[in-house]
Write a protein that binds this DNA or RNA. Structure first.
Lengths: 173, 173
DNA sequence: GCATTGACAGTCCACTGTGGACGGTACACC
DNA sequence: GGTGTACCGTCCACAGTGGACTGTCAATGC
């Protein structure tokens, strides 16, 4: 079991019915998209494997070759166990830090532009998260969804604080 | 050019000499390991490609088939341009958030244990970063290295704040 | 001296994750 | 009805991960 498979099973488990590959991609985008990416290719590959492992079951085909899947009893217990026993650690890949790490060899104005663009990007993202949070909160969404979104907010705030804490030796906006 | 290739060129550029694959893995671990992972397999694959592209040049072989590489003029200009023009966005993959997102279907005590373990882990990491920061600062390391480490500190602080901000409905330590 | 051992340099492979190209199908709109 | 478009799923090439494996050197102990 890998995280992608587990998240697909999680989505199928918590949707209370059947979802096709395309629907899973969409649902994943809104429900876990901010901290976990599911691409279409990945989703369909995993669905094939999950079916062969008996963790999901296809329902009756819909339009355009769409195949809705439903989680099985064994799929449910497997992914829940995976969540608590085999959860991998987080992986961080932050390209902008590469630019900072090697920033000493870059022209000062280019590094500054780079940092300014990233700063603007994160500012926008934070604003979007906050807005979304307010919406979901008033909509009475469950605490778990709010908690993951709240993580995003904490993260973006930290990034912005970091930008603003850069010492004057580093050309920053 | 991909981020891995760029970071290898960056390391070769800023080391002021030659490095073998093994040395690159080690140097990467200490210099950029906290926000970018380089595995051995990846490093050697990239080195082969970088040499065929003329971005690096092998020096005279050392013991145990070790091949030190030096960056070329074209390698230098290519990766520096990449840094400012083609830097990809950050990718975040945080498995613990999967457990939170689907936490509603988990037994409360299991979720709590999971969160407690993660909290302890991040607390330790933050302490380590802070220690390292103090060391590097007194050692008079350049501002760029301190800045990347500082990012790690901001990130870990944010994660811990998030843990502590979880609402009582979510079983947390 | 020589064998054993262990660390190290690099190779290889299977799997996971990303991104874009592609073909077929249904639906909406004229 | 015919056409465009959005959608469903497939496929492929590349990037990234992790572990198994070979060969080499050096230290250690006999």
């Amino acid at each position: 079991m890998n995280p992608t498979a587990a998240s697909l099973l999680g989505l199928l488990d918590t949707c209370g019915g059947e979802l096709t590959g395309g629907e899973l991609v969409r649902v994943a985008q809104t429900r876990i998209g901010d901290f976990w990416t599911l691409t279409r290719s990945q989703v369909y590959r995993e669905l094939t494997k999950l079916e062969s492992q008996g963790y999901i079951q296809p329902g009756s085909p819909g339009p355009r070759d769409s195949r809705p899947y439903r989680i099985t009893r064994s799929g449910r217990s497997t992914y829940r166990r995976w969540l608590v026993e085999e959860l991998p650690g987080e992986t961080v890949r932050i390209p902008i830090l590469l630019a900072v790490a090697f920033g000493g060899v870059l022209p000062a104005d280019e590094l500054r532009d780079l940092l300014a663009a990233a700063h603007a990007e994160h500012t926008k993202r934070l604003a979007r998260y906050r807005e979304l949070y307010a919406e979901l909160e008033t909509a009475g969404v469950d605490a778990y969804s709010l908690a993951t979104l709240s993580f995003g907010i904490h993260h973006e705030q930290a990034v912005l604080h970091w930008f603003e804490s850069l010492p004057p030796e580093i050309p920053s906006p």
